[in-house]
Design a binder for these strands. Structure first.
Lengths: 201, 201
DNA sequence: CCTGTAAGTCAACACCGGATGAGTTACTCT
DNA sequence: AGAGTAACTCATCCGGTGTTGACTTACAGG
């Protein structure tokens, strides 16, 4: 696991990419263990670097966390793109996009990291809530031409969060083993119902 | 917060109920902070008791956890009860039961505690997975007369887990504020679709 | 009454993780 | 070439945690 590279004092020749190595390692460990579970020492070891260097770059564990969690997501582009073809089939497009994203992010999945961290760390919960509310919920609500758009967006979010938790954190086998097409077939109608189905006023 | 009761050495006269106080406090703190976040000292303080007494009763933090997490659920009774009236309306009955359960459990909710703990603690994830698989999924699968019953049960679980996380851990406002009837109207058709809708073989 | 046992406290240990400050080496700019 | 700064390591501190062992007080059974 920890590479047995020889360490010496002082700066290395050339550009080392240590900063990025730390960020990558942080993403993986935060995703695997959450904010509290991940340790600076562990992240540093994965990055092949002294723990103090992490502090040199990022100051505190908290600042490292927010630096590592910058999502590779552009809701500002994504949402109009998903909405463009209209409300018909939106549930399916959402399901497909979500599943693809989960697969692509792999073991350094910042969404899983945030959920894991939110579990024991109210600040992370707040980050997640505020990010989602501002970046997704409000934006989607503005473009969804239905009743109670915020509630609908939140219901979709809950479904996708639940899928992530059940699959990647709890590891329920039927979900882990299901292929994407099956999941799309299962999810799309439910999401579509949340988005456009009848709701009491 | 911490009561300023006078402590003295040795056993107290009468029956103190300390053991139960510790269990109650443990349920609350584990639910609020997860396994790692909750501390023996904190639990002991809430119970108005010395930390060492917790060890005296339960030995280790882990054993306290499993003692505190014994769910007030009887899936063996619950599932036949929900299934008895048939597949029609099962989604709605499930939704109603789940929402009522969540409300009743309040701040000492062991399900939230388990999810929080599972986030950073693989053992808790395993507990949750095994409990759910054995007590709910297999039992439900045995009685659900549809295709792919395990996947269907897991999809329902994912939806309910997601609702719990989004509402109680992340705190998405539209979900926190929605009344039960609205939630039933939203959830029931989705759950019903998971249970009896079309799925690829 | 007396003895074992359970309930209860206190003080301390050992460990771990975040943080710090000093010291070292390399790049960059003038 | 020289000075300043950034990258880097080492040793250490400090607080918080689970856990332990010794000790004290009450209860229950013979």
């Amino acid at each position: 696991m920890t590479s047995t590279t020889i360490r010496r004092m002082g700066r290395r020749p050339g550009s080392s990419g240590s900063r990025d190595a730390v960020l990558d390692a942080a993403r993986v460990r935060f995703a695997e263990q959450g904010y509290d579970g991940a340790t600076i020492r562990g992240i540093a070891a994965n990055a092949g670097v002294d723990p103090a260097l992490v502090h040199h770059f990022f100051g505190t564990k908290e600042r490292l966390f927010v630096a590592a969690m910058h999502l590779p997501l552009e809701p500002a582009k994504l949402i109009p793109e998903l909405l463009a073809p209209g409300l018909d089939g939106l549930g399916e497009r959402l399901a497909r996009h979500f599943l693809r994203l989960m697969r692509e992010l792999g073991e350094a999945n910042p969404m899983i990291a945030l959920i894991r961290s939110a579990a024991a760390h109210p600040d992370a919960a707040r980050m997640l809530r505020e990010f989602y509310t501002r970046a997704v919920l409000e934006r989607l609500a503005a473009e969804l031409e239905t009743s109670r758009p915020r509630l609908r967006a939140a219901l979709c979010a809950a479904q996708m969060i639940g899928l992530g938790v059940a699959t990647f954190i709890i590891g329920l086998r039927p979900l882990v083993e299901a292929d994407d097409e099956t999941m799309v077939a299962a999810l799309a109608p439910a999401l579509q119902h949340y988005l456009t189905g009848d709701l009491p006023p």
